[in-house]
């Protein structure tokens, strides 16, 4: 390409050519595809990098907003009223009840784990349950097991984020899950290092036809949960009437486990519950 062509392109793109020169240059563009491609390329680069372009202003704004959220916990989904927001509002109300139920369950553990010395308490659940914010921050603080039982206690320590979703249905409208087995908080017994895991129930309402639902089992390991490393993961296959059954021998250690149904497309949790494994 000729030497002053660069200047000509720069002048053309920066709109500094007079009308006659501009017209002549546009004639060339129409006749020379290679030149037209080069100008389009430079225009693209210039547009992508112009700091005051609407896109880059939007990007700058998004970067600023994004800095506010440095961890998943900084985003509270219950603040939103996204599609399905009714369900989320329901979560807020239910969270208090469910969290309290979860705490009560935690307090009941000594009955199942003789190595722990927590006094059994009746499960607490009533419509007048105070909201989650008013609950004691963590039941296991005041009922902390002694150091000798710590390793076993650790395996039963709840994941707070999941606890608040236990038993919740995130879809209030089109369909919901009825899980018959395992019952919420059920205990499974290890036999030769394995449990006979059986998940049965039914999708009630308008059964989702095109939706892929992933069933995941997480241990109570916070890090594995955050990094989405379930101990077991499988697609949920349901019959036309919505019934589902999943049976599997799972090699699990004693501890607390969470059952999570997730919409594979949106990543949305559709159902959360928990069960225990003991020797």
């Amino acid at each position: 390409m000729e030497n002053n062509l660069d200047d000509l392109i720069t002048d053309y793109l920066s709109n500094t050519l007079d009308s006659e020169a501009r017209f002549a240059f546009e004639q060339r563009l129409a006749a020379e595809p290679e030149l037209a491609a080069r100008v389009a390329f430079e225009r693209d680069i210039s547009a992508a990098l112009n700091a005051s372009s609407p896109e880059n202003k939007l990007r700058a704004n998004l970067r600023q907003l994004s800095e506010k959220y440095d961890a998943p916990e900084s985003l509270d989904p219950s603040l939103g009223e996204a599609p399905g927001g009714k369900a989320q509002r329901w979560w807020i109300l239910a969270a208090g009840v469910l969290l309290l139920g979860g705490l009560a369950y935690w307090n009941l553990r000594p009955q199942e784990k003789p190595t722990m010395s927590l006094p059994p308490q009746p499960p607490l659940e009533s419509p007048s349950t105070p909201p989650a914010e008013e609950l004691p921050k963590n039941g296991d603080e005041k009922n902390k097991p002694d150091s000798k039982t710590q390793p076993i206690a650790a395996a039963f320590k709840p994941i707070p984020k999941l606890e608040s979703y236990i038993g919740s249905q995130t879809r209030s409208g089109d369909f919901h899950f009825r899980v018959d087995q395992p019952k919420s908080g059920a205990t499974m017994t290890l036999q030769t290092g394995q449990v006979n895991f059986r998940l049965s129930g039914k999708i009630e309402g308008a059964t989702p036809s095109s939706q892929s639902i992933q069933v995941m089992i997480f241990s109570n390991n916070q890090q594995n949960f955050e990094n989405s490393r379930p101990v077991e993961s499988q697609m949920l296959e349901s019959k036309p009437d919505g019934a589902f059954l999943l049976q599997k021998k799972l090699a699990l250690s004693p501890g607390l486990y969470y059952l999570v149904f997730e919409d594979r497309q949106s990543g949305e949790w559709l159902f959360v519950d928990k069960f225990l494994v003991k020797v």
């Binding site: 985003l75 939103g80 009223e81």
Partner: peptide, 13 residues
């Protein structure tokens, strides 16, 4: 951000 980043993160996870 608050409403739609969580489900997007879920999908990415």
């Amino acid at each position: 951000y608050r409403r739609f980043l969580p489900p997007l993160f879920g999908m990415l996870r």
